[in-house]
């Protein structure tokens, strides 16, 4: 798959079909991949595909000028479609190099299972439904659904539907919805006041680095409302109240664009369970309006469209 990717990417640049290639190259730490954004055809030799290509590369599309060949997993492709729906990018300017994705390995889960930090592990390898972690020369085996990201366990589209070049055989989605939704289900069992207090506590850790927003392909506003000063909707100080309002509104603003790629939660340096917000919003949008973002490039954006009869029970 990697070889094919390198050839195709190189050819795209050589034949001047794209100006840029966006993909992954090996990262500088164990078990990491890092985005490679290049116009140099020699760089394509470094392109990789592995279970650690975690970033949603669609995030870079709105900031780049020219035609782009982009490596896309299923979730990334949905973000790309969503950007097309919103007229942020033009389909013709993107060459989608589709990666059939069997799910990404969540290093936080691996650390928990292995009882060691990621840099203390010798190896992590996947073979079908088993993941083998080698620590101090000893091998430990785990079931795949213990090690994948929560959002991967809820994946509805492992292989992009919309693509230009398919890099491998598409596999079936293997949703483990129950495991994936555990956190949300647990929260829903709590009383409203307890839930609010939960978020209050979580957001008291927030340092307002805005990594969640900046890593989110759906957050493409030129100017975010948190940066408005007239009026000042939220204070730029990391008080839990302001942090929480920022995140509530961010989620509402990306409703119908969020594809549950899980990046917000992954990038958070202080482990705020942001996917438990994003996924719930994803669910609400689906439940109320049967809308799934990034599935159909012809569909109108959620907030630019309506049906005559919907959600009436919420109105007096």
């Amino acid at each position: 798959m990697e070889q094919k990717l390198r050839q195709e990417a190189k050819a795209l640049l050589e034949q001047n079909k794209v100006d840029w290639i966006i993909g992954f190259e090996p990262g500088s730490l164990k078990f990491t991949a890092t985005p490679l954004i290049t116009r140099d055809k020699n760089d394509t030799e470094r392109l990789i595909i592995n279970p650690f290509i975690v970033n949603n590369l669609a995030d870079f599309l709105t900031g780049i000028k020219g035609r782009v060949g982009i490596v896309a997993k299923g979730c990334d492709s949905r973000s790309i479609i969503s950007l097309i729906q919103d007229n942020k990018i033009v389909r013709e300017d993107v060459v989608i190099l589709a990666v059939p994705c069997p799910g990404l390995i969540d290093l936080v889960k691996i650390e928990r299972l292995a009882g060691k930090d990621r840099d203390e592990l010798d190896d992590i390898s996947r073979d079908g439904d088993k993941v083998t972690v080698t620590v101090d020369g000893q091998k430990k085996e785990f079931a795949i659904n213990q090690t994948l990201f929560d959002h991967c366990l809820a994946c509805e589209l492992p292989t992009p539907q919309e693509y230009d070049i398919l890099l491998g055989e598409p596999g079936p989605p293997a949703p483990e919805l129950e495991v994936s939704g555990q956190n949300i289900a647990k929260l829903k069992e709590a009383l409203p006041a307890e839930r609010w207090e939960f978020w209050q506590n979580e957001f008291s850790r927030c340092i307002r680095c805005y990594a969640c927003r900046n890593a989110c392909p759906a957050c493409f506003c030129q100017r975010c409302f948190v940066e408005e000063t007239e009026p000042q909707w939220v204070m730029p100080v990391p008080r839990w109240q302001d942090n929480l309002i920022f995140q509530i509104i961010r989620n509402i603003h990306v409703a119908g664009r969020c594809t549950d790629c899980g990046e917000c939660e992954r990038v958070c340096p202080v482990n705020i369970p942001l996917r438990s917000l994003a996924r719930e919003m994803y669910g609400i949008v689906d439940e109320l309006f049967s809308f799934k973002s990034g599935m159909d490039k012809e569909a109108l954006p959620l907030m630019a469209h309506y049906e005559q009869e919907e959600a009436e029970d919420l109105f007096k």
Binding site: T34, P35, L36, I37, T38, D59, F60, I207, R208, C209, Y210, A211, R213, N214, A215, V267, P269
Partner: peptide, 13 residues
């Protein structure tokens, strides 16, 4: 700077 997403992690922390 190409792959930087302009978040504040590396500076704030």
């Amino acid at each position: 700077a190409a792959k930087c997403i302009s978040c504040g992690i590396c500076t704030l922390l």
